[in-house]
Protein backbone atom coordinates (compact mmCIF):
# COMPACT_ATOMS: atom_id res chain seq x y z
CA UNK A 1 0.00 0.00 0.00
CA UNK A 2 1.01 3.58 -0.56
CA UNK A 3 0.58 6.44 1.84
CA UNK A 4 -2.33 8.84 1.53
CA UNK A 5 -1.36 12.33 0.41
CA UNK A 6 0.53 14.63 2.71
CA UNK A 7 2.58 17.79 2.49
CA UNK A 8 6.10 17.94 3.74
CA UNK A 9 8.19 20.60 5.38
CA UNK A 10 11.63 20.52 6.91
CA UNK A 11 12.11 23.40 9.35
CA UNK A 12 15.61 24.27 10.48
CA UNK A 13 15.03 24.79 14.16
CA UNK A 14 12.80 23.75 16.99
CA UNK A 15 10.80 26.98 17.03
CA UNK A 16 9.97 26.68 13.36
CA UNK A 17 9.04 23.05 13.79
CA UNK A 18 6.63 23.86 16.60
CA UNK A 19 5.10 26.66 14.54
CA UNK A 20 4.72 24.43 11.53
CA UNK A 21 2.89 21.89 13.62
CA UNK A 22 0.69 24.49 15.30
CA UNK A 23 -0.21 26.06 11.98
CA UNK A 24 -1.54 22.75 10.73
CA UNK A 25 -4.26 22.76 13.42
CA UNK A 26 -3.78 19.22 14.58
CA UNK A 27 -3.40 17.75 11.12
CA UNK A 28 0.40 17.47 11.21
CA UNK A 29 2.81 14.90 12.57
CA UNK A 30 6.48 15.18 13.30
CA UNK A 31 8.66 12.93 11.21
CA UNK A 32 11.99 11.90 12.68
CA UNK A 33 13.37 8.55 11.58
CA UNK A 34 10.04 7.41 10.26
CA UNK A 35 10.61 3.80 11.25
CA UNK A 36 7.24 3.55 12.99
CA UNK A 37 5.43 6.32 11.20
CA UNK A 38 6.56 5.17 7.75
CA UNK A 39 4.87 1.78 7.94
CA UNK A 40 1.73 3.33 9.42
CA UNK A 41 1.64 5.87 6.63
CA UNK A 42 2.09 3.20 3.98
CA UNK A 43 -0.65 1.11 5.55
CA UNK A 44 -2.86 4.22 5.67
CA UNK A 45 -3.38 3.74 9.36
CA UNK A 46 -2.39 7.33 9.84
CA UNK A 47 -3.03 10.13 7.41
CA UNK A 48 -1.66 13.48 8.55
CA UNK A 49 -2.02 16.37 6.12
CA UNK A 50 1.51 17.53 6.86
CA UNK A 51 4.74 15.91 7.91
CA UNK A 52 7.17 18.15 9.73
CA UNK A 53 10.59 16.59 9.28
CA UNK A 54 12.65 17.28 12.39
CA UNK A 55 15.34 14.73 11.65
CA UNK A 56 17.95 17.28 10.67
CA UNK A 57 17.42 20.01 13.27
CA UNK A 58 20.90 20.53 14.68
CA UNK A 59 19.73 21.09 18.24
CA UNK A 60 18.10 17.67 18.22
CA UNK A 61 21.04 15.85 16.74
CA UNK A 62 23.76 15.78 19.40
CA UNK A 63 24.80 13.84 22.45
CA UNK A 64 26.32 16.11 25.10
CA UNK A 65 27.56 15.47 28.58
CA UNK A 66 26.77 18.34 30.94
CA UNK A 67 26.86 18.52 34.73
CA UNK A 68 26.78 14.80 35.37
CA UNK A 69 24.00 14.27 32.89
CA UNK A 70 23.87 13.08 29.34
CA UNK A 71 21.70 15.11 27.02
CA UNK A 72 20.56 13.17 23.99
CA UNK A 73 18.86 15.15 21.28
CA UNK A 74 15.50 13.72 20.28
CA UNK A 75 16.59 13.09 16.69
CA UNK A 76 19.69 11.10 17.63
CA UNK A 77 19.35 7.66 16.09
CA UNK A 78 19.54 4.36 17.91
CA UNK A 79 22.63 3.49 15.84
CA UNK A 80 24.34 6.69 16.90
CA UNK A 81 23.75 5.77 20.54
CA UNK A 82 24.88 2.21 19.83
CA UNK A 83 28.10 3.53 18.32
CA UNK A 84 28.70 6.25 20.93
CA UNK A 85 30.37 3.93 23.38
CA UNK A 86 33.16 6.38 24.19
CA UNK A 87 31.02 9.42 24.93
CA UNK A 88 28.57 7.25 26.86
CA UNK A 89 31.20 5.60 29.03
CA UNK A 90 29.39 6.91 32.12
CA UNK A 91 26.17 5.25 31.12
CA UNK A 92 27.01 2.11 29.23
CA UNK A 93 23.43 0.92 29.51
CA UNK A 94 22.39 3.33 26.77
CA UNK A 95 24.47 1.81 23.95
CA UNK A 96 23.66 -1.66 25.25
CA UNK A 97 19.94 -0.96 25.01
CA UNK A 98 20.30 0.72 21.62
CA UNK A 99 22.11 -2.24 20.17
CA UNK A 100 19.20 -4.56 20.89
CA UNK A 101 16.57 -2.44 19.18
CA UNK A 102 15.11 -4.02 16.03
CA UNK A 103 17.71 -4.30 13.25
CA UNK A 104 20.66 -2.15 12.33
CA UNK A 105 18.85 -0.83 9.27
CA UNK A 106 16.05 0.39 11.52
CA UNK A 107 18.50 1.70 14.10
CA UNK A 108 20.25 3.74 11.43
CA UNK A 109 17.10 5.83 10.98
CA UNK A 110 14.96 5.41 14.06
CA UNK A 111 15.39 8.03 16.77
CA UNK A 112 15.17 7.97 20.53
CA UNK A 113 12.68 10.85 20.57
CA UNK A 114 10.52 9.24 17.93
CA UNK A 115 10.42 5.99 19.85
CA UNK A 116 9.36 7.77 23.03
CA UNK A 117 6.70 9.82 21.31
CA UNK A 118 5.30 6.79 19.51
CA UNK A 119 5.08 4.97 22.87
CA UNK A 120 4.75 1.43 21.67
CA UNK A 121 4.32 -0.60 24.87
CA UNK A 122 6.93 -3.09 23.72
CA UNK A 123 9.55 -0.51 22.72
CA UNK A 124 12.91 -0.40 24.47
CA UNK A 125 13.39 3.28 25.25
CA UNK A 126 10.29 3.92 27.37
CA UNK A 127 11.38 1.03 29.57
CA UNK A 128 15.09 1.84 29.66
CA UNK A 129 14.65 5.54 30.27
CA UNK A 130 12.15 4.93 33.04
CA UNK A 131 14.63 2.60 34.71
CA UNK A 132 17.37 5.18 34.25
CA UNK A 133 15.39 8.05 35.79
CA UNK A 134 15.72 10.05 32.64
CA UNK A 135 13.87 13.29 32.11
CA UNK A 136 12.14 14.14 28.87
CA UNK A 137 12.43 17.74 27.75
CA UNK A 138 9.47 18.73 25.64
CA UNK A 139 8.78 21.98 23.88
CA UNK A 140 5.66 23.57 22.52
CA UNK A 141 3.88 26.85 22.00
CA UNK A 142 3.55 27.21 25.76
CA UNK A 143 7.26 26.75 26.21
CA UNK A 144 9.60 24.10 27.45
CA UNK A 145 8.80 21.67 30.24
CA UNK A 146 10.40 18.57 31.58
CA UNK A 147 8.65 15.33 32.38
CA UNK A 148 10.16 12.47 34.35
CA UNK A 149 10.40 9.53 31.97
CA UNK A 150 8.65 7.24 34.44
CA UNK A 151 5.51 9.30 34.03
CA UNK A 152 5.88 10.20 30.39
CA UNK A 153 4.12 7.23 28.83
CA UNK A 154 0.54 6.82 29.97
CA UNK A 155 -0.72 3.89 27.97
CA UNK A 156 -0.22 2.20 24.65
CA UNK A 157 0.63 4.87 22.09
CA UNK A 158 -0.35 7.52 24.58
CA UNK A 159 2.01 9.93 26.31
CA UNK A 160 1.88 13.17 28.21
CA UNK A 161 2.99 14.96 25.10
CA UNK A 162 0.30 17.42 24.04
CA UNK A 163 -0.75 17.49 20.42
CA UNK A 164 1.28 20.61 19.80
CA UNK A 165 4.41 19.59 21.65
CA UNK A 166 7.56 17.88 20.56
CA UNK A 167 10.28 16.05 22.39
CA UNK A 168 13.46 18.07 22.33
CA UNK A 169 15.89 16.03 24.34
CA UNK A 170 16.28 13.30 26.88
CA UNK A 171 18.41 13.95 29.93
CA UNK A 172 19.87 10.77 31.34
CA UNK A 173 21.84 10.85 34.59
CA UNK A 174 25.33 9.50 34.48
CA UNK A 175 25.70 6.34 36.49
CA UNK A 176 28.16 6.36 39.32
CA UNK A 177 31.09 3.92 39.13
CA UNK A 178 29.42 1.61 41.64
CA UNK A 179 26.20 1.38 39.61
CA UNK A 180 25.00 -1.94 38.27
CA UNK A 181 22.39 -2.51 35.65
CA UNK A 182 20.80 -5.34 33.73
CA UNK A 183 18.48 -5.64 30.77
CA UNK A 184 16.71 -8.70 29.49
CA UNK A 185 14.10 -9.05 26.85
CA UNK A 186 12.58 -12.12 25.40
CA UNK A 187 11.76 -11.98 21.71
CA UNK A 188 10.51 -14.97 19.83
CA UNK A 189 12.46 -13.68 16.88
CA UNK A 190 15.54 -11.44 16.83
CA UNK A 191 14.66 -7.80 16.35
CA UNK A 192 10.95 -8.17 16.94
CA UNK A 193 9.13 -6.45 19.71
CA UNK A 194 9.60 -8.61 22.80
CA UNK A 195 7.01 -10.76 24.54
CA UNK A 196 8.47 -9.69 27.86
CA UNK A 197 11.17 -7.29 28.97
CA UNK A 198 12.69 -5.95 32.15
CA UNK A 199 15.45 -3.60 33.11
CA UNK A 200 17.10 -2.96 36.46
CA UNK A 201 19.37 -0.17 37.68
CA UNK A 202 21.02 -0.03 41.09
CA UNK A 203 23.17 2.98 41.85
CA UNK A 204 24.21 3.05 45.52
CA UNK A 205 26.07 6.32 45.24
CA UNK A 206 22.97 8.06 43.96
CA UNK A 207 20.67 5.93 46.17
CA UNK A 208 18.63 4.79 43.23
CA UNK A 209 17.14 1.36 42.78
CA UNK A 210 14.84 0.62 39.90
CA UNK A 211 13.31 -2.50 38.49
CA UNK A 212 10.89 -2.03 35.61
CA UNK A 213 8.92 -4.46 33.53
CA UNK A 214 7.93 -3.61 29.98
CA UNK A 215 6.32 -5.13 26.92
CA UNK A 216 2.95 -4.99 28.68
CA UNK A 217 -0.30 -3.71 27.24
CA UNK A 218 0.53 -0.22 28.45
CA UNK A 219 3.38 1.74 29.97
CA UNK A 220 6.31 0.07 31.74
CA UNK A 221 5.58 -0.68 35.37
CA UNK A 222 7.99 -0.24 38.30
CA UNK A 223 8.55 -2.95 40.88
CA UNK A 224 9.55 -0.57 43.59
CA UNK A 225 9.29 -2.85 46.60
CA UNK A 226 11.37 -5.48 44.88
CA UNK A 227 13.97 -2.90 43.89
CA UNK A 228 14.07 -1.56 47.40
CA UNK A 229 14.46 -5.00 48.89
CA UNK A 230 17.31 -5.83 46.60
CA UNK A 231 19.00 -2.53 47.30
CA UNK A 232 18.83 -3.18 51.00
CA UNK A 233 19.59 -6.89 51.05
CA UNK A 234 21.21 -7.81 47.75
CA UNK A 235 20.61 -11.15 46.07
CA UNK A 236 18.83 -12.55 49.12
CA UNK A 237 15.81 -10.50 48.19
CA UNK A 238 15.77 -11.87 44.66
CA UNK A 239 13.70 -15.00 45.05
CA UNK A 240 11.32 -16.46 42.50
CA UNK A 241 8.49 -15.92 44.96
CA UNK A 242 9.40 -12.29 45.52
CA UNK A 243 9.58 -11.58 41.82
CA UNK A 244 6.36 -13.41 41.10
CA UNK A 245 4.55 -11.55 43.86
CA UNK A 246 5.94 -8.23 42.72
CA UNK A 247 4.71 -8.84 39.16
CA UNK A 248 1.34 -10.12 40.34
CA UNK A 249 0.76 -6.99 42.38
CA UNK A 250 2.10 -4.52 39.88
CA UNK A 251 0.51 -6.01 36.79
CA UNK A 252 -2.59 -7.86 38.00
CA UNK A 253 -4.09 -8.12 34.53
CA UNK A 254 -1.40 -10.55 33.35
CA UNK A 255 -2.51 -14.13 32.95
CA UNK A 256 -0.50 -16.97 34.47
CA UNK A 257 1.66 -17.37 31.39
CA UNK A 258 2.32 -13.67 30.99
CA UNK A 259 3.19 -13.43 34.64
CA UNK A 260 5.60 -16.31 34.39
CA UNK A 261 7.29 -14.89 31.32
CA UNK A 262 7.66 -11.46 32.83
CA UNK A 263 8.84 -12.88 36.13
CA UNK A 264 11.57 -14.90 34.43
CA UNK A 265 12.58 -11.89 32.39
CA UNK A 266 12.69 -9.69 35.48
CA UNK A 267 14.70 -12.28 37.34
CA UNK A 268 17.28 -12.38 34.56
CA UNK A 269 17.55 -8.62 34.24
CA UNK A 270 18.14 -8.26 37.97
CA UNK A 271 20.55 -11.20 38.03
CA UNK A 272 22.47 -9.52 35.28
CA UNK A 273 22.58 -6.31 37.28
CA UNK A 274 23.76 -8.15 40.37
CA UNK A 275 26.46 -9.88 38.39
CA UNK A 276 27.71 -6.78 36.63
Amino acid sequence: MKSAKFDYTRPHDVRAAIHALADALGEAKFLAGGQSLGPMLNLRLTRPKLLVDVSRIEALRSIDVVNGSIRIGAAVTHAEIEDAGASLARNAMLPAVAREIAYRTIRNRGTIGGSLAHADPAADWPLALAALDAVIIVNGPAGQRSIPSARFMLAAFTTQLADDEMIEAIIVPELSPSARWGTYKFCKRTGEFPDAAAMAVFDPARRIARVYVGALSGAPVPLDALARGIAQQGAVALTATAVDRAIAMAVPELDAVGRKMHAATTMRAVQQALAS
Binding site: A209, A231, Q232, G234, A235, Q271, Q272, L274, A275
Partner: peptide, 16 residues
Amino acid sequence: PVVQPLAKPWQAFTPA
Protein backbone atom coordinates in the same frame (compact mmCIF):
# COMPACT_ATOMS: atom_id res chain seq x y z
CA PRO B 1 19.71 -17.42 29.87
CA VAL B 2 22.40 -15.66 31.80
CA VAL B 3 23.25 -17.18 35.14
CA GLN B 4 26.29 -15.51 36.52
CA PRO B 5 27.86 -15.44 39.94
CA LEU B 6 28.01 -12.16 41.78
CA ALA B 7 30.90 -10.23 40.34
CA LYS B 8 31.57 -8.21 43.44
CA PRO B 9 29.94 -8.01 46.84
CA TRP B 10 26.65 -6.21 47.06
CA GLN B 11 26.81 -2.78 48.59
CA ALA B 12 23.51 -2.46 50.40
CA PHE B 13 21.70 0.86 50.33
CA THR B 14 18.29 2.35 50.89
CA PRO B 15 16.89 4.10 47.85
CA ALA B 16 16.10 7.76 48.29
